[in-house]
């Protein structure tokens, strides 16, 4: 069954059809939540909440990119969560090992074919990038994630954040510029091909 048929069936209340759509898009939705929120538990909750919300209002879906529609719902769920955190600040949970120490490189980042040193370097670099992303304001993080991680074009991203295309363009440029500035502080971690210092 193709996506349009599954959506049509889900609109009639068929939960099985909707769950097939969930399985198709849950990686995208979860990744978006993780990039915007920055921690896996909150991302898990936001993803689940987003799918529940999506099922309840699927009749309001009027065509277009279904992935963009889902990403809009999860991005809004993330904003809601961030607003809640602002009202009740909490310490974000990092993944912990058996000894209770924070894991710098969670299992999901592992590549079995990679040498341990290379894996460690890459893990550190990724951590640096994510740290820099976390320093961005949520609206910038969301746009970077939508365009550079989810691979949406500007029009789709504008649809997701419900802002004009110019806003996407502006936020993305400023976010990339800030990330570049932030990553200057991690230059020793960057591969030579990715050194960001001026080559002049």
């Amino acid at each position: 069954m193709d996506e349009a048929a599954l959506i049509a069936s889900a609109k009639q209340g068929d939960l099985n059809s909707f769950n097939r759509l969930v399985l198709a898009y849950q990686d995208n939705v979860y990744h978006q939540a993780l990039r915007v929120l920055g921690d896996s538990q909150a991302a898990d909750d936001a993803t689940q909440e987003a799918f529940i919300s999506a099922f309840r209002k699927i009749r309001s879906y009027r065509g277009g990119s279904f992935r963009a529609w889902l990403l809009r719902i999860v991005t809004n769920a993330c904003y809601d969560e961030l607003r809640r955190r602002k009202r009740r600040p909490t310490t974000p949970l990092e993944p912990l090992d058996d000894a209770g120490e924070e894991i710098d490189s969670p299992r999901w980042m592992e590549d079995p074919s990679e040498k341990p040193e290379a894996f460690t370097e890459r893990a550190e670099l990724n951590r640096a990038i994510l740290d820099c992303m976390d320093k961005l304001v949520p609206e910038f993080r969301a746009v970077v994630s939508l365009v550079d991680i989810q691979g949406l074009d500007y029009a789709e991203a504008a649809e997701v954040i419900e802002k004009p295309l110019g806003t996407v363009k502006s936020r993305l440029a400023r976010a990339r510029s800030r990330l570049r500035d932030c990553l200057q502080g991690y230059r020793e971690l960057l591969p030579s091909a990715f050194r960001l210092e001026s080559e002049v």
Binding site: L15, V29, L34, S40, T47, R56, L179
Partner: peptide, 27 residues
């Protein structure tokens, strides 16, 4: 290069299935 670094971040897979039960869906 910055853009490329972000795009090289590993793809994250959902840690579990987020399929809905009838109770969760409000059915």
């Amino acid at each position: 290069r910055t853009r490329q670094l972000i795009r090289n971040l590993p793809k994250v897979r959902a840690p579990r299935n987020f399929t809905l039960s009838p109770e969760m869906a409000g059915i």
